[in-house]
Structures are given as C-alpha cells and as structure tokens.
Design a protein around this nucleic acid. Structure first.
Length: 312
RNA sequence: CGCGGGAUAGAGCAGUUGGCAGCUCGCCAGGCCCAUAACCUGGAGGUCGUCGGUUCGAAUCCGACUCCCGCAA
C-alpha cells in the first residue's frame, strides 16, 4: 500500500467508538467522512444529545454527516471519493447504490459469530442461550441483513457472569483490535472472503422493553441468564402483586425442589430468595423504583415488607 | 420548561394537627452456648443535603439551590 486508504466511517453508538479510534490511529487509513445518526433528545431533561461517534469525531475535527435518510446521500458519498466504507452499528440499512460506490465496498463489524445471530440483539442472544462463546465478524456487506461474505472472525469465551454490558465492551474492543489489520489484509487480497453457511444462519429480533419482565414460571437458571443478558438495557425486573416493579441486577441460582408457591419471596439463610417455576433464584443486587441500586442484604434491612409480597 | 420520586447514625429505612431524633442491621464492650446469619445486657455514632424565610420552637411549613434516582426517549 502506498497511498492512504480513503475511508468513510459509519457508526453511531458507543460500541463503534473504539473501531473509529483504531482506524484513526492506523497510518494506513484516512477518514474522509463520518456518518452517524442525527442528534436525539435523550436523558431526564430530553436534552438534544449527539451520538458518541459524533462526539469522538468532533474532537478529531472530522467532517460529520447526520442525514435522516442515508438513501439520498449517494452523491455526497461519491464526492468524498472513498476507497472503502466501514460500518459499525450505524443504525440504518445501507442501500446497494451506496454499497457499490467504494472500490473495496463496504465492510461491517458485527458482534456475533455469523451466520449465528444475524440481526439486532446479537449481544444479548448468546447470553440468553447460555452459549459458551461469542465473537465478532468482519464481513463484506451485501444488501441482506448481516448476510455478507466473512472476512475474519474472532471469538471470546463467555464467563458465567457475562452481562450485556461486559460483552458489549469486550466485543467492541476486540472488533477494534483486529479491524485495521484485517482491512489491510482484505484490501491487499491476502484474505479471500468466504460465503456464510446459510444452513447455520439464525436471526435475533430487536429486544423490547417488555422482554425484561422476569416471568416467575420460568426456571431460575433461565431467569438468571435474562438478568445478565438485559443488564443494563432494557433491565430485568420483577412485577410484584402490589404493582411495583423491582429491577434485578444480579442473581444466583440454587437447585432445589420445595413446596413453596411460584413467585413467593422469602429469605433463606439470610438471602433474598424467589421461588421460580423451577429451583430458587437468589436476588443479590436490586433496585426499587426511584431508589438507588443496592445489595439485597442492605435492601432487607429497611424493606422487610417485601417478604409479604409475591412476584407475579 | 417531557412526567415523577428521593436526600434523616457506617448501611437500609421510619418519622406532618410543628414540641427532647427512631427502627432494623452493622460497629464497640461484656454475657450465654458443644454450636449458630442464634440469643441477652450495655455503649459509641446525626449541626435530619445546602442557603434563607415563617415561628417561642422546624426533620416537619414556605422559597431558592445542589446532588441522586424511576419513567419516558
């Protein structure tokens, strides 16, 4: 490679920031434009807030574009004369007309080991399913949803305490770590992208708020996985029979058959316990509405009344 | 001005017709027991978020401010 690779970066949330920084650090890439979603009102005061990628790009003085619709951007993108477009969690489908513009096409970083977990909730899915590993896939984008040819993959082992948050950070960093080198190998022709095995493909849908509801008829193990997979968003919560919602931030399980009712809340050996459809869920860390998050042991000191309630 | 909750002992919480500041746990000292997340006795620890106002008197009523949080996005 003699000249720098003219690159457009498209991304929006925190997940994409390390990737952008990795390309900025590499001497082989020149970021000629950054596409990100428009600022949105966010937070308690509904303050118009720029996406993390915009904030990162601003500090480097990069040209930023925040169109509502990417479809109409073909002319602008052409004028930037990109050799390559790198897309990490941009948040919009990129049309074929744009995919075709750069000579090296568009390359995407996806946070799963494709073809498994195509789609939106690829970070939560392996935790929900109790998988032992996940990873990132760098692929050449095509018009489908995460169906492009695979350039490179890297895996990570999931720990028994993996949360959406921890996996997000690990995969975000991992993707950024291999990004620059992988792109260079791809452009040099050292790597030949491989088609995905369609027979192994699976799709995961967008997580909805209501998915965070812990349904007590499920097994303790399943609930515990949900607590990790939905932490911090959308958050796993118990609905009590007084109408109150209690967020459960951390829990443990105990295999135990007993005669208590499903949904019963009690203490066992000083721990806050919930009887589930199967086995017992020990709630270790929780958050009552309008309160701070706290350990269950602290919570019990001033909230013994919860023992008269049930989860429904 | 998107809606709403909160700030009281190390922790978690009570505490409005304004009138000496409480509970549970923890902590310290001692006791009891083969033993215990057990129990008993005693003790330390708070200018009740900040500033101002009303009052004989304010954690409590009024005003301003700071910080924290839930919903919603």
């Amino acid at each position: 490679m003699t000249a720098k690779i003219r690159t457009i970066f498209m991304g929006t949330p925190e997940f994409a920031v390390p990737g952008l920084q990795a390309l900025l650090k590499s001497p082989d890439f020149e970021i000629v434009g950054v596409y990100t979603q428009p600022d949105k009102p966010v937070g308690r005061k509904m303050i118009l807030t720029p996406p993390p990628i915009k904030t990162a790009a601003l500090t480097k003085g990069l040209p930023i574009f925040q169109p509502e619709k990417i479809n109409a951007e073909a002319d602008n993108i052409r004028s930037l004369k990109p050799d390559l477009i790198v897309v990490i969690a941009y948040g919009k489908i990129i049309p074929q007309t744009i995919l075709d513009i750069p000579q090296y096409g568009c390359v995407n970083v996806h946070a799963s080991l494709l073809p498994k977990y195509r789609g939106a909730s690829c970070l939560a899915a392996p935790i929900l399913n109790g998988d032992e590993e996940s990873g990132v896939t760098i692929m050449k984008m095509d018009a489908g949803m995460d169906t492009g040819d695979i350039i490179k993959q890297a895996g990570v082992k999931l720990s028994a305490k993996e949360t959406l948050s921890s996996l997000h950070d690990r995969l975000s960093a991992l993707g950024a770590e291999i990004l620059a080198d992988t792109l260079k190998e791809y452009i040099n022709g050292t790597i030949n992208p491989q088609k995905q095995d369609e027979s192994q493909a699976s799709y995961v849908p967008l997580i909805k708020k209501e998915d965070g509801r812990l349904q007590v008829n499920l097994s303790a193990a399943e609930l515990e996985r949900r607590i990790r997979a939905y932490n911090p968003w959308p958050g796993a919560f118990l609905l009590l029979n007084n109408g109150e919602k209690i967020k459960v931030l951390e829990a443990d399980t105990e295999i135990s058959a007993n005669t208590r009712k499903i949904g019963e809340i009690y203490t066992k050996n000083g721990q806050l316990a919930l009887n589930c459809g199967q086995d017992i869920l020990f709630i270790l860390k929780l958050q009552r509405e309008n309160r701070k998050a706290m350990n269950a042991s602290d919570f019990l000191k001033g909230n013994q009344d919860i023992l008269n309630l049930n989860a429904i």
